[in-house]
Design a binder for these strands. Structure first.
Length: 504
RNA sequence: GGGCCGUUAGCUCAGUCGGUAGAGCAGUUGGCUUUUAACCAAUUGGUCGUGCGUUCGAAUCGCACACGGCCCA
């Protein structure tokens, strides 16, 4: 595609700077190929600094090393017959030294018309300036891509949060910190994936679109599939499909992928978010807690190179054993004024919940009340890594009942700095109990609970064929990345967070 | 959904008591062969988020709306 320039000048947000740059591009087009794609750099900025940054001016002069680099011009210091450029590539920045005597007057005069933001390719010799900065003294320079729009201010960068989210590419150009968040995110996901592959887990992909949404208490997004003339739901979790695979004989499976939940956005919630889910046959929730501790230590060690990291000013130490409390123990520990006897009584538990700002529904059982009380007055106070276990059966419709107390399940959640990072349990593999739990969910749906689960007949059928004793877990990747990058909002760890479209 | 704050040049921000808009960076022109937030001189650039209202007069006061941020539910 090669539209001529006059087809393109109908922009409404055109200003003088863009007009000047379009004129420059027009001149470049007339002179030849304006968007060449035949330049191949052989070096990256950070690698050059790492390898040659310590060499002396004299050593580099004697070595006469030729390198080629490419990237975006981010700073310029133009003098009469010589100039310095700061070039930014994926890895970092490197200074380029350009002399009219080396390139010829014609090339130098052309180069002087280029702008900050342009993408260039350059070849030259490694050198050090009198002030000791590693630089490339150029023998040739080429404009590879003309930038038509001016970059944000060079010292303070792009500050406006809205623009940083809506135009993430600008944020990435301007902010090293932002780039590092997403580089770390990639490393975290990579490390997690290797962890499971090393334990003989198999990575799978299960449907994003489901006829019956299941696997979590959440309201789904609805879409319509024309070919089948049916409503489909974007998945709220991959759980039921992954357990079908365990029925099928894949004993260890995991999936790292997106879930969609049709609920509000906040610093902790995004309508689409990335989740690790894994299922392990012949294991229980105690095994998963042990595995989770080990996983956390390995990921933190490999990605951050330490066992202690700081989040929101608090040092988090993953090297110590993670604390473990049952949900009821945690409520009592953080709220000395509440008694175990009160929590055992629906009336008193309702009063306790109400006093803590919970909008109590009359049809809630004791289990739901416990969960709400926990969320209202414990969750936010947990800082160091802590497992909360034995969630009520009433709020855990897919989890196995505890052998000693059928009011609770063999379940845990991992909390760090008030954030729920993981949720796992010994799986309910009794098809008749599962059918009964689904029926209770359906009753709740009919009573108006949009987050209650649907009855999944085929899932019951799968369990009736027999699912081995299994434990399974979900781990929120975005929240983990928030922790390990000290990010206050989930939007800061999602490349393109959803924003309300701007009105035209 | 509620509360608070924000929206002024491409970017970062000033703008007093209501009197018709400023700086730095970026841009343009000129100078400068080791600069580094380069520097020196000159200079261009604005529907003050949108709409309505109050007023002789609104970036400034009021109301509504839009978008965003933080907090709460």
């Amino acid at each position: 595609m090669c539209p001529s320039d006059n087809e393109l000048d109908q922009e409404t947000d055109e200003n003088e700077i863009i007009a000047q740059r379009r004129a420059k591009l027009s001149a470049i087009r007339k002179a030849g190929q304006a968007f060449p794609n035949d330049f191949r750099p052989d070096s990256k900025a950070d690698a050059l600094h790492a390898e040659y940054g310590e060499k002396s001016k004299e050593e580099l002069a004697a070595a006469g090393l030729t390198v080629s680099v490419a990237g975006r011009v981010v700073l310029r210091r133009i003098m009469g017959k010589a100039s310095f450029l700061t070039l930014q590539d994926t890895t970092g920045r490197i200074q380029l030294y350009i002399r009219q005597n080396d390139l010829g007057k014609e090339v130098y005069d052309d180069f002087r018309k280029w702008d900050i933001g342009d993408i260039i390719g350059a070849v030259g010799t490694l050198m050090k300036t009198n002030k000791g900065e590693l630089s490339v003294q150029l023998s040739s320079i080429r404009l590879l891509t003309k930038s038509l729009r001016p970059l944000p201010e060079k010292h303070k960068g792009l500050v406006d949060m809205e623009t940083r989210y809506r135009q993430r590419y600008l944020d990435l150009i301007m902010s090293k910190e932002s780039r590092e968040v997403f580089i770390k995110r990639s490393k975290i996901v990579d490390r997690i994936r290797r962890y499971f592959l090393d334990l003989d887990f198999m990575e799978v992909e299960t449907p994003m679109m489901q006829a019956i949404p299941g696997g979590a208490a959440a309201e789904p997004f609805v879409t319509y599939y024309n070919a089948l003339s049916v409503n489909m739901y974007l998945r709220v979790a991959p759980e039921l499909n992954l357990k079908r695979l365990v029925v099928g004989g894949f004993d260890r499976v995991f999936e790292i992928n997106r879930n969609f939940r049709n609920e509000g956005m906040s610093a902790k919630h995004s309508p689409e978010f990335t989740m690790l889910e894994f299922y392990m046959a012949y294991a229980d929730y105690h095994n998963l807690m042990d595995l989770s501790e080990d996983l956390m230590r390995q990921v933190v060690a490999d990605v951050l190179g330490t066992q202690v990291f700081t989040y929101d000013g608090v040092d988090i130490d993953v090297s110590k054993p993670f604390q473990r409390f049952t949900l009821v123990e945690a409520i009592l520990k953080y709220n000395p004024e509440i008694s175990a006897a009160d929590l055992a009584d629906v009336e008193n538990a309702s009063i306790i919940a109400d006093q803590r700002g919970v909008d109590v529904h009359t049809d809630w059982g004791l289990g739901k009340l416990h969960m709400e009380i926990f969320e209202a007055c414990v969750e936010d106070h947990i800082q160091q890594p802590t497992f909360i276990t034995q969630h009520p059966t009433e709020v855990s419709p897919l989890a196995r009942r505890n052998d000693d107390n059928e009011f609770v399940t063999d379940r845990f959640e991992l909390f760090i700095m008030g954030k729920e990072i993981a949720n796992g349990f010994s799986e309910l593999n009794d098809p008749e109990d599962q059918a009964q739990r689904f029926l209770e969910q359906v009753k709740a749906r009919e009573a108006g609970d949009k987050e209650a689960m649907h009855y999944d007949d085929d899932y019951i059928t799968a369990l009736e064929y027999g699912m081995p004793p299994t434990a399974g877990q979900g781990l929120g990747i975005d929240r983990l990345v928030m922790l390990l990058t000290d990010s206050a909002s989930i939007r800061d760890v999602v490349l393109f967070p959803h924003m309300r479209p701007k009105a035209q």
